[in-house]
Design a binder for these strands. Structure first.
Lengths: 234, 234
DNA sequence: GCTCGGGTTTGCGCTGGATCAAAGTGTCGA
DNA sequence: TCGACACTTTGATCCAGCGCAAACCCGAGC
């Protein structure tokens, strides 16, 4: 691991306020893994024997139903922890994580968790904060799914992606990893057909630009208006 | 607080393995409150200045959308913590909690959290476990809402209530607090009309018995079959 | 015992989106 | 350069469940 990597890593919330030598000790206990696009980081129902920190790339957390339908629970960005079931007293992963692009992760053996959390409070605290934030976010999605129309849900999903991984370009804000209509459908509980129709309609209105596995939000604000209930049908 | 109360309380997961004198200290820092039916324990958006332990009764955690629709996030049973936003680094409650029946809660000032979690590991650990379990459960609901038909969702919701608060009677398993069609609709993202039709249909098939604010599941197993995908339409 | 109000049932028409089907179209490997 | 495949668009049809409306029923309080 290069020195540059290390300094970047040191800035992550998980390691905040940790002395350099402690950081070294923690990092030495982790293995760095390269995950190819579309490969799984860990599998639903699998033994939770590791927890991970995503260093580079984007991964999606996916739950598969008994009859094979998939639901994308969330996307993980660089710097975020994933597969932390173990830390929450679970023995098996409740979902799979799949690399959306080539990724680099740090993997710690799960049994190290209690020790790490105890020795380095920032580690525990920041994890629990993350979990708290995810719980709230997930609850918000329940509310969305329970009360909103498909159009609003898709708008919300895009806005969430924009906020999380948006990259400014001259055309607008680009979601900076390959994402298909199908993926968006799996985030919002609809079908790729409906997503396609929506994106086409939005494109005509100048709200977004999109292409094969690519979405750019041109006018976040108007999209936001759409996402919040009743927008005029002009 | 009576001696009986105390011994019951000592058995709760949160206090597991805590020495009696420690338990006393912790309890002395809490106030015991009586919440009348339909009264709020805490309010969405409100300052998270306390966290609570439900001692007796049942409370529902509710999120209200900007346009006034309500979604029931979960029901809280005796012995469970609620309003723990503070412990997860949030400064404001993301939802309201309303007493479904007359309740008794213990309330600790939020600022005590770090101290309590540090002094009594079981307190912290069990809380995080709870949060982890809730996160998973909430994610499971997202999957349900995204992939299942209304009938399956309602079936799942009832089964969840049965497992959580079911009380065996000679007719079947009774959900032991008043619950209206509207409540069930708000748990499953549908309307009270649809819930009413479903319950009537199920009653005819002998799966449940229900009345005003009351539901008894007669045949949990058949309901379970319904909840899991394709049940034969006999 | 009667009335009032909140909860429930039921009918009916309508529509948002799913489903089915088929025809583009951009991209990558050979 | 040329497929071939994976992703996308678009059309046509259908139906689960919503919205609206009205009647009903039960329990609480007078």
């Amino acid at each position: 691991m290069s020195r540059l990597d290390r300094s970047l890593i040191a800035g992550l919330p998980v390691f905040q306020g940790m002395a350099p030598e402690d950081l070294d000790r923690v990092l030495q206990q982790a293995r760095s893994l390269r995950i190819a696009k579309d490969q799984a980081v860990f599998e639903q129902e699998g033994e939770a024997h590791s927890f991970f920190l995503l260093l580079d790339g984007h991964a999606r957390v996916v739950k598969t139903t008994p009859d094979g339908q998939q639901v994308i629970v969330r996307y993980i960005s660089p710097g975020e922890l994933m597969g932390i079931a173990h830390a929450l007293g679970r023995s098996t992963y409740p979902a799979s994580a799949v690399a959306a692009v080539d990724c680099v992760v740090l993997a710690w053996p799960g049994h190290l968790w209690p020790e790490l959390a105890e020795s380095f409070p920032s580690f525990g605290t920041s994890t629990y904060k993350t979990v708290g934030a995810r719980l709230q976010e997930t609850q918000a999605r329940v509310v969305e799914l329970a009360t909103e129309q498909v159009e609003q849900r898709v708008a919300h999903a895009l806005l969430r992606l924009v906020k999380q991984t948006g990259k400014k370009t001259d055309e607008g804000i680009l979601i900076d990893f390959p994402i298909s209509r199908q993926d968006i459908a799996e985030m919002t509980g609809t079908t790729l057909h409906t997503v396609s129709r929506l994106l086409t309609a939005w494109e005509e209105k100048g709200l977004v630009k999109s292409g094969r596995q690519k979405v750019t939000v041109v006018e976040p604000h108007r999209l936001f208006v759409l996402a919040e209930g009743r927008a005029d049908k002009s």
